[in-house]
């Protein structure tokens, strides 16, 4: 029987691998096309799970999840746009902000303050892990200061919106599965329906289409399947697991695996700077700390 921390790390590893595949894919097609391919596969996997679990029918409540999905697609577009302007800063800005906001909001909404109570040893350890996570992404990539002041404002606004959407999506899934009693497969189906709808609109609005090479489709399906497994497992865990802690564990696992994959799979060791090595060490340290709790 594995602990929830190990289970969350595993979901993070799966997402990290999927993200690494996506990183490889974007050099061959646009991020929007890759996103649609991934979200379409996730929707298909979740639809099969829903049929197996006999989760049919529709409730007006599900429109909330469709709305979350559509808004996520908009914020995803904002994230892609911001990362085109400056990739390094995007990671530095949005990752710690969303992590911090998730911890604060889940503490407020789901009464998870107890996990960060500085009067207990465990609480202190969790606070330390949170701080290290924030540092981790600062070291992840060097910041590019070539943006003009106006562009930097637009860039910041896009990333702020994107980070807020990550928070809303996390709170929505936690509320749905832990408070409203919605099955994870049902939640994911409607959320990814909205995401796919938004993604397709953006692809065609940009004058692109969904005709990508067969090889890309295969990799897209692999990426989507890994993401589907990861998100479904994570959503199932959230029924009982605290969102604040698990979001840190998952986030650190994703960043660490993406860095390790770049290092060992994509041969990026020559391009990895000292900051990223520090970030990798911090990531492994945070994981070890949280898993030891």
């Amino acid at each position: 029987m594995i602990t929830w921390q190990v289970a969350v790390v595993t979901t993070g590893i799966l997402s990290g691998i999927a993200q690494s595949i996506g990183k490889r894919q974007v050099s061959r097609m646009s991020a929007f096309q890759s996103g649609v391919l991934r979200d379409g596969t996730i929707l298909l996997v979740v639809a099969v799970v829903s049929v197996v679990q006999h989760l049919y029918g529709f409730s007006p409540l599900y429109l909330l999840f469709v709305g979350v999905g559509i808004l996520e697609s908009v914020m995803q577009a904002a994230y892609y746009s911001a990362s085109r302007e400056e990739m390094a800063g995007t990671v530095v800005f949005s990752y710690p902000l969303s992590s911090l906001l998730i911890v604060l909001s889940s503490g407020f909404l789901f009464s998870e303050w107890g996990y960060f109570d500085p009067r207990s040893g465990r609480g202190l350890l969790n606070i330390l892990a949170l701080c290290l996570t924030l540092f981790l992404v600062f070291f992840y990539q060097k910041r590019d200061d070539t943006l003009t002041r106006t562009k930097r404002f637009h860039w910041s606004a896009k990333l702020l919106a994107s980070a807020l959407m990550v928070v809303v999506a996390n709170l929505a899934v936690k509320w749905a599965v832990a408070v409203a009693g919605v099955k994870p497969a049902s939640y994911m189906f409607w959320e990814y329906l909205g995401l796919l709808f938004g993604g397709i609109v953006f692809v065609y609005a940009r004058g692109q289409d969904l005709h990508v090479g067969r090889r890309q489709v295969v990799w897209g399906i692999v990426q989507g399947t890994l993401f589907a497994a990861s998100v479904f497992w994570y959503a199932t865990l959230l029924v009982t697991v605290p969102l604040s802690l698990s979001s840190i564990v998952r986030r650190v696992a994703i960043v660490t695996v993406t860095t390790l994959a770049g290092l060992f799979v994509f041969g990026e060791h020559k391009r990895i700077n000292s900051g990223q090595w520090v970030s990798l060490a911090l990531g492994l340290g945070v994981l070890a700390m949280l898993l030891a709790v």
């Binding site: 409730s59 007006p60 409540l61 599900y62 429109l63 909330l64 999840f65 469709v66 709305g67 979350v68 999905g69 559509i70 808004l71 697609s73 908009v74 577009a77 904002a78 409203a180 909205g194 938004g198 609109v201 953006f202 609005a205």
Partner: peptide, 20 residues
């Protein structure tokens, strides 16, 4: 376009939230 899709998303979100 982002605003338009966002309005659709917000409408769905708002209606679902109201139902909740």
């Amino acid at each position: 376009l982002a605003l338009l899709v966002g309005v659709v998303g917000l409408s769905c979100f708002g209606y679902g939230f109201w139902q909740a």
